[in-house]
Simulated scan of single mutants.
Amino acid sequence: MKVTIRQIAEAAGVSRGTVDRVLNNRGKVRPEVEERVRKIADELGYKPNLLGRALIKMKEDIKIGVIIQNTGTPFISTVSDGISRAKAEVENFGGTVYVHPVDYGNVDQMLYAMNEMKEYGVRGLALMPIDDEKIRKVINRFSAEYHIPVVTLNADIADTSRICFVGQNAEQSGQTAAGLMCDVLNGHPKKIAIISGIESNTSLSRRIRGFRKEMGLLSADTILLPTKYCFEDDKTSETIITNILREHSDLDGVYITSHGEKGICDGIKKLGKTGKIKIITCDLSEQNYEYLKTDEIKLIIGQDGVYQGYESVMVLYRLLFNNEKPEQEYNYTEIVIKTKYNI
């Protein structure tokens, strides 16, 4: 019959926790108590659970790295919340999650952070990548040379050996925005401005691509102005929209693929065009919900940032702990449409 920790504890006159600490070498037990527990365990014929110990050791060895681009936006805060939840779960099981934010679009910082993660001994890396050839090469080196699997989150990167992507289908999001823009402008928009964050964010560039492609199919006569980049900064976005409206007073709509909504709404308001220009944006935030209520923003196309942060870490944990491979290469989040009537 298998000898249990409870039987040893009763025979030694100590708690089960004390027996567990002695048998698993966790310390914090007086030497004379430890000696008594080990002697009784031997007399009763206790056999350690080698599989259980192996699992504990495996969990302790799991180190996961996370690198995100810190834009300071409400959306990134939701991604960070998801990462924090996953970190708490992994570390509750004895693993470790290192989180390293880098400045938005800063390639050198990201390369440094990736090297730091390798030095930490991570066995998996979740990465919000920058679309840059040097980043691409290091991702492939992680896989081929270091045997460290990489999961991309929020933004994907082509021609790499990353194992899967967790985030929105950005091109489909852009197509959705085009369809909605046509609907709110009665099917025939005359002129649309597109304002984005930075060119090196593939999620943003794919939204633009989807929007332009679908708008061309739905309303070929619509003039789509060249994309302007605000670097997710409200002052910059206000300057951009002000300059656009001075040159294009007949503007019908604005598609915003990134943060910068406040600057755009402020610029439009100062020129007395609130409500006349239809705005579709992409961030679910309390600020944007207020703009919906006042009709300064017409529609929001959102994504689940918490899930992106959480699942990108947990995909790696399941792979490292139980060799559970991702079920699919593209783990897309739901495309959520918000109006003032459903917030």
Rank of each mutant, 00 (worst) to 15 (best):
C164A: 12
F165K: 12
F165M: 07
F165Q: 04
F165V: 10
F165W: 07
V166Q: 08
G167N: 09
G167A: 07
G167Y: 03
G167L: 08
G167Q: 13
Q168E: 07
Q168I: 11
Q168G: 05
N169I: 00
N169L: 00
A170W: 02
A170G: 10
E171P: 12
E171M: 11
E171C: 10
Q172L: 15
Q172D: 15
S173E: 09
S173L: 11
G174V: 03
G174N: 01
G174W: 04
Q175W: 04
Q175P: 03
Q175K: 15
T176Y: 13
T176A: 13
T176K: 14
A177F: 04
A177V: 11
A177K: 07
A178L: 12
A178I: 06
A178M: 10
G179N: 10
G179E: 06
L180R: 13
M181T: 02
M181R: 04
M181E: 03
M181F: 12
M181H: 12
C182V: 07
C182Q: 06
C182M: 09
D183F: 14
D183A: 15
D183T: 15
V184N: 04
L185V: 05
N186S: 13
N186G: 09
N186P: 01
N186R: 10
G187D: 06
G187F: 05
H188E: 15
H188A: 15
H188M: 13
H188Y: 14
P189A: 00
K190R: 15
K190T: 09
K190P: 08
K191M: 03
I192E: 04
I192Y: 10
A193L: 05
A193V: 07
I194F: 01
I194Q: 02
I194H: 00
I194P: 01
I195N: 05
I195F: 10
S196G: 06
S196Q: 04
I198G: 05
E199Y: 13
E199M: 10
S200T: 14
S200V: 10
N201W: 13
N201L: 12
N201D: 14
N201A: 14
T202G: 05
T202L: 11
S203C: 12
S203I: 00
S203T: 14
L204W: 03
L204G: 02
L204P: 00
S205V: 04
S205N: 08
S205W: 02
S205Y: 07
R206F: 08
R206L: 11
R206C: 03
R207F: 00
I208S: 00
I208Y: 01
R209Y: 14
R209G: 03
R209K: 15
R209I: 09
R209P: 09
G210S: 06
G210R: 01
G210C: 05
F211N: 00
F211R: 02
R212V: 07
R212T: 11
R212C: 06
K213N: 14
